[in-house]
Amino acid sequence: MSDLPIHLLLFALMGVGIVVLASFYSEPEDCKALAAIPRRFVAFVIGCGIVALLLVLAQYTVASVR
């Protein structure tokens, strides 16, 4: 659990890279692509959070090995 901040930092770093390149791929104009990065990053974090939540729920319910 003490590693959590480092894991979150690594996740944020990877998320920024993915969002930046995805934003520039989607938007032909650089200014629009740059402006879209914060909104896209929030959507990325929320989406990943939902997936993580579902995985944790599954771990304690249908996929529990206890």
């Binding site: 990877m14 890279g17 993915i18 390149l21 520039f24 791929y25």
Partner: peptide
């Protein structure tokens, strides 16, 4: 994961 994602992101750059 970082190394692999770096390579996969380059595909996105090629498409662009």
């Amino acid at each position: 994961a970082f190394g692999a994602v770096g390579g996969l992101l380059n595909i996105l750059a090629w498409l662009d």
